[in-house]
Design a protein around this nucleic acid. Structure first.
Lengths: 242, 242
DNA sequence: CGCCTAGTTGAGGTAAGTCAATTCACGTGG
DNA sequence: CCACGTGAATTGACTTACCTCAACTAGGCG
């Protein structure tokens, strides 16, 4: 069937989907929408009863502080859920905005809860997807809490590469990356000015080049070593547990 | 029935549990274990097929870096799951250790997956619990990424208070807190020395006193205001959705 | 009595922030 | 076709929040 629907590819990497599960997932794909850069999908604090699956493009989820600063919690790439967490809590505790123009599939809360009850193996798969999301946030926390700016940027670019590789959008050579230095700064708890300096340093040392919408790993092994990147945790995916 | 089993109280806050669900949860409570301070429950990188529920005491989950630093990801209080995330991923990407002597209930992976398949409403409740966990980690990320040290400590103490209040272990007056300044430092991405200075400052300004195993909110409202604490996100719990 | 852990405080260093100016790529409208 | 505006990236000069090192105190316990 539609093996190239991002969500199916993603969940299918964890469990073998039955015919009925596949058709259920495919049926979701009727509610498709498009969002352009600049138009938020979800506003922080807004009560919402819907989540989305990202079909194409990049998005980011973030939290705003009173003083106008913001912390980007995570970037989402095709196949990822958007706003899954706020589906069970009653209010979205974070905002979501497109990084590029995006296509999404909407999932209503009621449909979602129904699906959980009637296709329990899907529920397990969703739980797994959520575990992956959480692992990503944890990785970000470690970046921000305990790595200096250079390691932090290096580690982040590697991790993003690993995630993209899993969905066929990257390799150890690099990947297309629509992020700006400002977005990077907000995700990594740095100032944009400093991100710029760090990127220059990494480029001059011949490890990564972040430029013109592309990340090029000039020396992947050296970068991995420098950032203390644990490649093993890519294990997150591709493990058919049952 | 055993309404004071922490897990039942926790999940029961989200869904109304049926008799069979209750008895299933109660049946879990045969596999109880005790861990003393200093004995890790889970080692980072160890493949594990079990999670736990914390019945009494405090624990923390953390990640170690190559350079010997560590980042505490979250503290767990009675009723919380331990290692839930690593149950579906194959390897535990983090370590877990007791903060105090603790009592836990062990949950094997197979039992857990079985339960998900056969009691779908429990699956939903677990998903909700996981959403709460993730929200906590996100809050920590915002602390570390975008708040200065004083706001960060203040916000953290408030958030912990809110969580403890939900399980009857705290109030706006304060709570018993077994954490050391070193643990606080590892959780907040600060040095222990600096944590000490910040705590002194908060104490001298009459907002919180962190001393002798207790957190006393000397001026709750002022502290909330200073830290930019959103009380509403306590909404996470107590919402019987269906 | 002496050791160990937790907490406290001071002095000095540095990584990263802020402010500000400049360049470049780009679209858009006159 | 050029003038203009706008968002992204770049670089320098200066400031500062937090870290490191180090010394010291106080309580708990074998």
């Amino acid at each position: 069937m539609d093996k190239n629907i991002p969500l199916i590819r993603k969940l299918g990497a964890f469990i073998a989907l039955s015919e009925s599960e596949l058709s259920f997932l495919a049926s979701l794909h009727k509610r498709r929408r498009t969002f352009a850069v600049g138009s938020d999908l979800v506003h922080q604090g807004q009560p919402d009863q819907a989540a989305y699956v990202l079909d194409s493009g990049w998005a980011c989820s973030y939290k705003l502080l009173e003083n106008g600063q913001r912390q980007i919690v995570d970037f989402q790439i095709p196949g990822d859920f958007l706003g899954l967490r706020s589906l069970l809590l009653n209010v979205s505790d974070h905002g979501i905005e497109p990084v590029t123009d995006i296509k999404v599939t909407k999932i209503c809360a009621t449909d979602f809860l129904n699906a959980l009850e009637h296709t329990p193996r899907l529920a397990t798969a969703v739980l797994w997807a959520m575990s992956c999301d959480e692992a990503t946030v944890v990785e970000r926390l470690v970046d921000v809490g305990r790595r200096n700016s250079t390691e932090r940027v290096a580690h982040f670019l590697l991790e993003l590469g690993a995630r993209l590789t899993l969905v066929g959008l990257g390799s150890t050579d690099g990947y297309a990356c629509p992020l700006t230095q400002y977005l990077l700064a907000d995700a990594l708890g740095l100032s944009a000015v400093h991100v710029n300096r760090v990127l220059r340093q990494l480029r001059e040392e011949g490890m990564v080049t972040f430029q013109n919408g592309f990340v090029d790993f000039d020396n992947y092994d050296q970068l991995v070593n420098f950032a203390g990147f644990e490649q093993s945790y890519m294990d997150k995916a591709g493990q058919l547990r049952y």
